[in-house]
Design a protein around this nucleic acid. Structure first.
Lengths: 173, 173
DNA sequence: ATCCGCATGTAAGTGGTTACATGATTCG
DNA sequence: CGAATCATGTAACCACTTACATGCGGAT
């Protein structure tokens, strides 16, 4: 459900192929939703079957044929309805915190490695997000909202680093 | 995989029924992992089939029979191996942020409602976590680590509220 | 020649949710 | 008398991941 609406939202910006969508899930919307191509192609077929999108085969001038998907009027209505509906409840599943929770069974070295890995991963992602932020501008309301979602990710990554400092300080002693 | 190891971790603390485990997923470990009973019973059966846990039927003195599950030596080894293994990469999927991202198609009232709902949900969860925190003590290393995972949740919820303040301030003007 | 980017999809499996179904005991 | 808690499980479905499979065009 959420995936199909995000795809509709992206198609509302411009007609796209499954491949184009995949690139969006790897970049612009990747900080709050990911999807792999098997999922994307399946969902696109579904949207077409439901009449929320339509396909047009564009002969590849110098590449394979593109299956361009375009949002329909019904699709725009479905998108608007979803935007105004109550957000699905979010599940937070964190394999790292699961390890920390049972971390008493781990020796000091293992625990330090666990935190070090988390710190490295968090830093790397923060750097990625900050690069994305730098190359964006808040021209209109839509752009400001899209930037706000990125800022949300950045804020949480910084919080994670601060938490790591606190916990490692406590453990280190 | 992660679910089965968390269950092993809980069974390492004490033998339990599926019902007991469900209560843990609703309370102590709920802030980083959730599971419903269908999943729990299925996974318990799997663990027994793999020899990582064993069952003992305890006749109910004043209630239904309990299927007590106990971790085996092989189970402890599997738990230790998982603890020392590299954490599975975490997927962050947030239906709320997805709505904000496409929020330009929403009118001002819709947008304000969206943020208000998020704020209420965040506050409610923060209150729950803080109550849990108050009733806990950091006696030994294990308890400190378990508390740290709760503090992680609290820190992120506070960050979310701060982010909401910032975004709503910007939108409101 | 070989690899990378573009572009499409299928098959099989795992993980997770929802709905259905049963039954005893205890507390108000 | 009814609701809540304890306790178990099945069936069906939906969401997501991984692996397999193909083929063109352009750059090194």
């Amino acid at each position: 459900m959420v995936l199909s609406r995000i795809i509709l939202g992206l198609l509302a910006l411009a007609p796209m192929t499954g491949y184009d969508l995949k690139r969006h899930f790897d970049s612009t919307v990747g900080h709050f939703w990911t999807a792999d191509k098997a999922q994307i192609y399946r969902t696109l077929a579904q949207l077409v079957a439901e009449g929320l999108a339509e396909v047009e085969t564009v002969a590849g001038s110098r590449a394979p044929d593109r299956q361009e998907h375009r949002i329909t009027a019904a699709g725009r209505a479905a998108l608007a309805a979803w935007l105004a509906s109550e957000p699905e409840r979010q599940v937070d599943r964190d394999p790292f915190l699961a390890r920390v929770f049972f971390g008493a069974d781990l020796d000091d070295g293992g625990l330090r490695l666990l935190f070090a890995q988390r710190r490295a991963a968090t830093r790397a992602q923060l750097a990625r997000f900050e690069r994305m932020r730098a190359g964006a501008e808040a021209s209109d309301r839509g752009a400001r909202l899209r930037l706000a979602t990125l800022d949300n990710g950045i804020a949480h990554l910084r919080t994670e680093l601060a938490w790591l400092d606190a916990v490692e300080g406590e453990i280190g002693e």
